[in-house]
């Protein structure tokens, strides 16, 4: 076992891990932050997305030891300390951008990166960016609507589905 130390949602944390311990498992089992979901465990579904040093990464496809010294942000670090939802989370709630909710943490983390790079994405930009986020409720319509709304775009003409 090797010690790993990193900044997790702004707080320093450390723990003992094996070489093979995935970042996702360190977050969920080592740190008790179960908002990061493991969907496919084969790098395809995006439920485990977190930010490492500001970049969107699949925490099931990165070892915990690779995050040594990094700043890691998970879905638990997105809302304000008093529980006030972020603009993206609020838009997902307002526009029913989630059904079972399993893919939602990854969708929110992915959206945060998109809006950082592209503050007013078109529908095509959003669909392209979400290529690695799979929603098996197939709730994409309202997810895209929520992201349009979160980026300050008018969605009043888009039908709810």
């Amino acid at each position: 076992m090797t010690k790993v130390s990193l900044s997790l949602n702004g707080k320093p944390v450390s723990g003992k891990v094996e070489g093979r311990t995935l970042l996702a498992d360190f977050l969920r089992e080592g740190q008790g932050l179960t908002g990061t979901h493991i969907g496919c465990d084969t790098s395809q579904c995006g439920a485990c997305l977190v930010h490492v040093n500001g970049d969107l990464v699949k925490s099931c496809t990165m070892f915990a030891l690779e995050a040594e010294g990094c700043e890691v942000t998970t879905i638990e670090g997105v809302a304000a300390g008093d529980g006030t939802l972020s603009g993206i989370q609020d838009a997902f709630r307002e526009h029913h951008g989630l059904q079972c909710g399993f893919c939602t943490p990854g969708m929110v983390m992915s959206t945060a990166e998109l809006l950082k790079i592209n503050p007013k994405p078109s529908e095509a930009d959003i669909r392209d960016h979400l290529e690695g986020n799979i929603c098996r409720c197939t709730g994409y319509h309202n997810i895209i609507k929520a992201i349009m709304a979160a980026s300050g775009q008018d969605v009043s003409g888009i039908a709810a589905e």
């Binding site: 995006g46 997305l49 969107l56 496809t61 990165m62 998109l114 290529e131 690695g132």
Partner: peptide, 9 residues
């Protein structure tokens, strides 16, 4: 290549 998260790593 791949998707955004794959391209970041």
């Amino acid at each position: 290549i791949g998707d955004v998260a794959v391209r970041n790593r």
